[in-house]
Amino acid sequence: MRIAIRHLSRYQYDQPVPYALQRLRLRPQSGPGQTVIDWRVTVDDVEPALSYTDGHGNRIDFVRHQRNTREIVIVAAGTVETVDRAGVYGMTDGIAPPWIFERETPLTQAGDAVKALAAQVSASAAQLQMLHELMQTIHERVAFEPGSTGVGTDAETALSEGHGVCQDHAHVLIAVARVLRVPARYVSGYLLIEGVDDQAASHAWAEAYLDGLGWVGFDAANNRCPDDRYVRIATGFDYRDAMPVSGIRIGQSAETLDVEITVQQTQTQSQSQSQGKI
């Protein structure tokens, strides 16, 4: 499947910002399940001058602003071709060994609710079956409610309160998996939704590492494993390692962020020619 994506982030400030640094995680990489056909990232219509790859294998653009700006517009857009691998990303990539993803982070720290859920699902002998059951249980217990949580909400809070967004579903699954000594990581990206081109936010899911399979994706928000409708952007221990934009700025100005995301299926040349025949 060929998917076209446009992700616009518009930062506006009530006072001029004399200096700001931003770290952008907005570049998908070709790998198992996806091939980047074309992709471009611009900041105020200019391509970033500095880019590097972090320890998780994410491609990072580093941007510095020094012009008393009141507005910053970031656009990431391009086309990615995907194939359905039934959620299996495969063996480890990058330099980080799988076992390092067993450690807790502030957003995935296990409290009573997470530990209780881990005890409930741990009776299953097969890890893959257990993780599918865990995904379904989280889907049932954590209602999808946009705006009910924030970027700082941790897994324990989302599970205890019973609502959240895809970020929270991913954190809960990661937290439970780590209690069970299963390496798990956070994945950010995009999801093609039938009949919905314009979206208010990007997507997130979790991956667990299983012997013999490698990394396997689990999207508890939708209760399914990632297929050819998913485009991955970045991975990490939790949201903070994979968030699309992070940074710092000097000054006391108030910030407003507007996000516009379009995710659409496009036709390949062969599909177009085929559909043009009668």
Rank of each mutant, 00 (worst) to 15 (best):
T153A: 08
W99N: 11
T82A: 05
Y19N: 08
C225I: 06
S274R: 12
R181G: 10
V231L: 06
V63L: 05
I37C: 03
P32H: 05
A113Y: 00
D44A: 07
E140Q: 15
L173A: 06
G31V: 12
G111W: 06
G147M: 03
A119K: 12
V41A: 07
R40P: 01
V36W: 01
S9D: 02
G94H: 09
V17N: 01
A221L: 05
G189Q: 03
T256C: 07
T108K: 02
V121G: 01
G90F: 04
Y230H: 14
C166F: 00
A254R: 15
P98K: 05
Q271V: 11
Q264S: 15
D168G: 04
T35D: 11
P97D: 08
R23K: 14
H163C: 11
D211M: 12
V75A: 08
A126S: 14
A49F: 07
D61W: 03
L8K: 11
V83E: 15
I74V: 12
H65S: 10
A158R: 01
R6Y: 03
T157V: 13
V176Q: 02
F101L: 04
I278N: 08
V172R: 00
L134I: 09
N223S: 13
W99V: 11
R103F: 12
S148M: 07
A4V: 05
Q199P: 03
G195P: 06
V63E: 00
R59N: 06
V83G: 05
T256A: 13
V182W: 00
Q66K: 12
S188Y: 01
A221E: 04
G94V: 12
D211N: 14
H132G: 07
A170G: 06
Y230Q: 05
Y13D: 08
T268D: 10
S274L: 14
V259R: 05
Q120Y: 12
P146C: 07
G214K: 04
A220R: 01
V182F: 02
E71Q: 14
S202W: 01
A170E: 01
Q29P: 00
G247S: 08
E104M: 09
E145K: 14
D54M: 07
G111R: 08
Q273G: 06
M243H: 11
A184H: 02
Q269P: 06
L21R: 09
P28W: 04
R181T: 13
T153K: 06
Q252N: 15
R249S: 10
S51M: 09
A119M: 10
T266R: 11
V63Y: 02
V46R: 11
I248V: 15
R64M: 10
A206N: 02
W215K: 02
H171I: 03
D93A: 13
D168W: 01
I95Q: 13
R185G: 02
S124K: 10
P183L: 09
P32M: 07
S148P: 02
D241T: 05
A123W: 08
R67T: 13
A86H: 15
D44W: 06
Q252K: 13
H139G: 05
S202D: 08
S272P: 00
L134C: 05
Q252F: 09
R27Q: 09
E156K: 01
R67F: 10
F62Q: 10
A143E: 15
A86M: 09
S270L: 12
G150D: 13
M91A: 14
I100S: 15
C225A: 14
A86V: 08
Q12D: 13
E47R: 14
K277S: 10
Q29T: 12
